Amino acid sequence: MVDLSLVTALVTNLKTAIDIGKTVKEITDISQVRDKVIEMQELILSAQSSAMAAQTQLFEVLQDNAELKHKAAAVDEWAATASRYQLRDFGAGTFAYELRPDAANGEPPHRLCPTCFEQRKRSLLQFIGHTASDQDFYKCIPCAQDYFFGARQSRPAPKRTVSRSSFWEGY
């Protein structure tokens, strides 16, 4: 905010300088005219100083305003992006943001890292493969977080065929 005292000082100094200029017309003594001109110059210099300070403050306010507009635009842009996703539980305590089908706009279905999402970053999870327990294994490349989607499936132990003769060999 521009300091109003600077603007007030500017106006006051200029008004006083004008008043001095009017009185100089009526003075006939050259030494008094010089004194009044010097006084008027000092007031004009003071007014210029106040004007420069006010201009500097105004420039700072304009810069702050531009920065705030930029931040507000970034917040609005992220809000539009974030509204396209919903947090979903993929089982086994694994959560991720998933693209809502009605907001796809031609993009294929995908999932976003919840850690990056909370930091206002759109980081697509990359499918790595399936685990031995039939979970989908995804990785977030930027934050290196691993995600295992789906409940763990226990696989039956492989059947061992044992012949009678090999069974009794150990006894």
Rank of each mutant, 00 (worst) to 15 (best):
V7D: 10
A9W: 08
V11N: 09
T12E: 08
N13M: 06
N13G: 05
L14H: 00
L14I: 06
L14R: 09
T16Q: 11
I18R: 05
D19C: 03
I20P: 07
I20R: 03
G21S: 06
G21K: 07
G21H: 07
K22R: 08
T23A: 07
T23F: 08
V24Q: 02
K25R: 08
K25G: 11
E26V: 03
I27C: 03
T28R: 07
D29A: 02
D29C: 05
I30T: 13
I30Q: 12
S31K: 07
S31H: 06
R34M: 08
R34P: 00
R34S: 09
R34D: 10
K36T: 02
K36H: 02
M40L: 02
E42P: 05
E42Q: 09
L43Y: 03
I44K: 00
L45H: 13
L45K: 13
S46G: 07
A47H: 01
A47T: 02
Q48F: 05
S49W: 04
S49G: 13
S50I: 08
A51I: 05
A51K: 09
M52A: 13
A53E: 15
A53M: 15
A53H: 13
T56M: 13
T56H: 11
Q57V: 13
L58K: 11
L58S: 15
F59W: 14
F59P: 11
L62Q: 15
L62N: 15
Q63K: 14
Q63C: 08
D64A: 15
N65G: 15
N65V: 13
N65H: 12
N65F: 12
A66S: 10
E67W: 03
L68K: 14
K69L: 15
K69G: 10
K69F: 10
K69R: 14
H70E: 12
H70K: 15
K71F: 09
A73M: 11
A73E: 13
A74P: 01
V75F: 04
V75L: 00
D76L: 13
D76P: 09
D76S: 12
E77L: 06
E77H: 14
E77Q: 15
A79V: 03
A80C: 07
T81W: 08
T81K: 15
A82C: 03
S83W: 01
S83V: 03
R84Y: 01
Q86W: 02
R88E: 04
D89N: 14
D89K: 11
G91I: 05
G91C: 03
G91Q: 02
G91V: 02
A92C: 11
T94E: 05
T94K: 00
T94C: 06
Y97D: 04
Y97Q: 01
L99T: 09
L99G: 07
R100Y: 00
R100V: 04
P101Y: 01
P101S: 05
D102E: 08
